[in-house]
Design a protein around this nucleic acid. Structure first.
Length: 259
DNA sequence: ATGACTTTCACGGAAAGA
């Protein structure tokens, strides 16, 4: 499972609700927005999970939650080659022989912004790391879950006019995502199982965007080619975008056999 | 419609998100 929670501490009741509802084996969280000192280990452990995390304080932050008795082994809480490593956007660990990554790709802000160049550099480093994971870690498989801040194709957003000349849809961003898929030998799980289906994972808090279903599919589960035979289902739980204090993203669920 | 909402830090309002 992968979910951009937009603050782990603000979202903790909904996160614990999600764990109880679906009992996922591995959860990749993004935008935890808490310092390492404030990470809510106690509440997560009380729900039967252990966490590894890369926390940067006020902004960004990622984590992997693993359901007991599974264990997160050989954790790495940084992306090698990330030009701004203090921003806390990458953590990985091996669970049951498979390497799992939680990733939060930078927003980019605008095509002219230095943040946009930083986004492309981050994605290039992610592609290089994905390729290196197989040769370096000895893991039998690779799964990246996260907020990639890229709508892979025009089908993955509703309001095309609003995104002319904007980030998330530009050619360089889409090429960088393609490069990550190719270098990591990865497949976009949702699109692989649901070709041609319009489903979103993010809706702006403003202007009733969720109610009108004006959103984007920017949260992805990228599954290694060696695991594609075990890829059974993939879906988005829209109920967690509703109700009390929702995130602006909905959780992405993947049913995957890694044995 | 130059907006709309939600979070953090800090205690007003800027910064960030997408």
């Amino acid at each position: 499972m992968s979910w951009n929670v937009n603050s782990l501490r603000a979202r903790l009741p909904r996160v614990l609700e999600l764990l109880a509802a679906h009992q996922p084996d591995v959860v990749a969280l993004q935008e935890t927005k808490c310092s390492a000192d404030n990470f809510p280990h106690e509440e997560i452990e009380h729900s039967g999970y252990t966490a590894i995390h890369h926390s940067g304080g006020q902004w960004a932050g990622v984590a992997l939650l693993v359901r007991e008795p599974l264990q997160a082994q050989a954790p790495l809480t940084r992306l090698p080659g990330d030009p701004v490593p203090a921003e806390a956007r990458w953590c990985e660990a091996t669970v049951a022989g498979t390497r799992f990554v939680s990733v939060y790709v930078p927003n980019g802000r605008s095509l002219e912004s230095p943040e946009y160049r930083r986004k492309l550099a981050f994605m290039a480093a992610a592609a290089k790391r994905a390729a290196a994971i197989r040769s370096e870690t000895g893991a039998r498989g690779l799964v990246l879950g996260g907020d990639f801040n890229v709508a892979p194709a025009d089908l993955d957003l509703r309001d095309h006019a609003a995104y002319v000349g904007a980030t998330h849809v530009s050619e360089p961003e889409r090429l960088a995502l393609t490069e990550l898929l190719e270098q990591g030998s990865l497949v976009d799980a949702f699109r692989h199982l649901h070709p041609g289906e319009e489903q979103f994972t993010w809706w702006d808090y403003r202007a009733g965007s969720f109610h009108k279903n004006i959103g984007m599919r920017i949260d992805l589960a990228l599954v290694g080619s060696e695991l594609q035979g075990g890829l059974m289902a993939c879906g988005i739980d829209r109920d967690f975008r509703k109700g009390f204090k929702p995130s602006d993203h909905a959780p992405l669920l993947v049913w995957l056999g890694v044995g």
